[in-house]
Amino acid sequence: MNKQERTWEKTGFVFVNGAGLESRIWSKVVEGLDHPYLLVEFPHRNGSVESRKDLSMMDYVAHMKRQVDEWGTRKFVIVAHSLGGVLALKLAYEVSDRLAGFVAVGAAIPENGGSFLSVLPFPKRILMSAILRKIGTKPPASAIRSGLCNDLSSDQAAKIVQGFIPEAVRVYTDQVDASVPIVPKLYVKLTHDKEFSPSLQNNMISNLSPQSVRILETGHLPMLSDPDGLRFVLEDFLANM
Rank of each mutant, 00 (worst) to 15 (best):
S115R: 09
I144M: 07
S96W: 01
W26P: 03
I126V: 15
H192Y: 06
G106Y: 05
F116C: 12
G20F: 11
L21Y: 07
H35L: 02
A178V: 02
N202H: 13
L230K: 08
L190P: 01
D69P: 03
M1W: 04
V29W: 09
I205C: 02
G12F: 07
H35N: 11
I182Y: 05
M57Y: 05
K134Q: 11
M64P: 02
V61D: 09
V29A: 05
L99E: 06
V180W: 05
G18R: 02
Q201W: 11
V61W: 11
G84Y: 10
M223I: 01
P227D: 08
A100L: 04
S197F: 11
M57P: 06
S23E: 15
V16T: 08
S118T: 06
N203D: 15
L117P: 11
D151T: 07
A130K: 15
Q4P: 00
I165H: 08
E111H: 10
V68I: 14
L234I: 04
E41T: 09
V119P: 12
E217K: 15
V79N: 07
V213P: 01
F42N: 13
V103P: 02
L132E: 06
E41F: 00
A19I: 13
S225K: 07
L55F: 10
A157T: 15
N17S: 12
S129D: 11
D155W: 01
V49C: 02
M58I: 13
K10W: 00
F76A: 06
D174N: 06
K189H: 13
E9G: 00
V49L: 09
S48E: 15
P198W: 10
I205A: 03
I126H: 04
L234M: 10
E235T: 12
S142V: 06
S48P: 14
L117K: 09
M241F: 08
D174Q: 09
R45N: 08
A157W: 14
P227C: 07
R231A: 10
A108L: 14
Q175G: 10
I78P: 14
L55I: 10
M57T: 04
L83S: 10
R6N: 10
E70Y: 00
R170F: 03
S197V: 04
C149T: 09
N240S: 14
R98C: 04
G229D: 09
G106T: 11
W71G: 05
D34V: 01
S23G: 12
S206N: 12
S56R: 15
S27C: 00
L216G: 03
L234Y: 05
H81Q: 12
L208T: 01
F76L: 09
N112M: 08
L39W: 04
